[in-house]
């Protein structure tokens, strides 16, 4: 257990010392809050709460895709990674340490969004709703964690950067994260959103923080994404292990 914390601590240090990666995950959603949410829906308590939930999912997705996808791919390319395999520890501390690190990054990424929502908009939640919302956010981050791991283990780092960016944007827009409350979204987004994991994730957060009731289709698709990318992530991890360490 102490080795898990050791790995988490040093990976966190490594990540935080290249602050641009963390800033990327936290500034983009924060700016989107300032430019789109505050001026347009800031005075509408319900709409602002919806938008805040969407921006939280946005921040978490970005932290997952980039920290896992690019982080794992870059680490695989470094000779430091095989060196770590010679240290007296199994793969667990490194793997678990990484998950803790990403959770830390996610926390940093969502704080500006929460602060902006609290001070500059009329978005409101009860303490219980906030807690439930954060739990829903954690649950909703699962498909993006698996997607990031799949990208990181399946691709070389240069490809991982591109793929993470290419995946990221349609996921955000298509899932309806940038188009306000679900009822006001344009028709084509209403049509495709339920099939994307971003929508299932944000519906969990909305259900926890508002009187929104999630659609069965979105949640079923969210589960499907988790299953599919869980399988792909495990496949890519094993393939990578087999290729380098057999």
């Amino acid at each position: 257990m102490s080795l898990v914390l050791t790995h988490a601590r040093y990976q966190f240090l490594e990540t935080i010392r290249v602050p641009i990666s963390v800033i990327g995950s936290s500034v983009f959603p924060a700016l989107a809050m300032l430019f789109f949410v505050v001026p347009f829906t800031g005075d509408d308590a319900v709409a602002a709460t919806y938008a805040t939930g969407a921006m939280l999912v946005f921040a978490v997705m970005s932290a997952c895709l980039f920290t896992y996808g690019i982080g794992v791919a870059e680490d695989r390319a470094q000779p430091w990674d095989p060196y770590l395999r010679t240290l007296p520890a199994g793969p667990l501390p490194r793997f678990t340490g990484r998950i803790l690190t990403v959770m830390g990054i996610m926390t940093i990424a969502i704080i500006p969004v929460l602060l902006i929502a609290a001070f500059l908009t009329k978005a409101t939640v009860t303490p219980l709703q906030l807690l439930l919302g954060l739990a829903a956010l954690l649950l909703g981050s699962l498909p993006f964690t698996l997607m990031g791991l799949f990208i990181g283990y399946a691709l070389p780092s240069k490809a991982a950067i591109v793929v993470a960016q290419v995946v990221f944007f349609p996921m955000a827009v298509g899932g309806g994260l940038l188009t306000g409350p679900p009822s006001t979204a344009p028709g084509f987004i209403k049509a495709i959103a339920p099939y994307l994991p971003t929508r299932g994730a944000v519906e969990l957060v909305w259900a926890a923080t508002t009187d929104f009731s999630p659609a069965l289709l979105s949640l079923a698709m969210l589960t499907l994404w988790v299953v599919v990318f869980g399988g792909l992530a495990v496949w890519a991890y094993r393939r990578d292990e087999g290729r380098r360490f057999s």
Binding site: Y10, L13, E14, R17, V18, Q78, P79, W80, D81, Y83, T86, L87, P88
Partner: peptide, 17 residues
């Protein structure tokens, strides 16, 4: 492996640490 020590390649040392 607690009883052994190995040299990593210096090009891979984590630059931020």
């Amino acid at each position: 492996r607690r009883g052994i020590g190995v040299t990593p390649q210096e090009t891979g040392l984590p630059p931020a640490l």
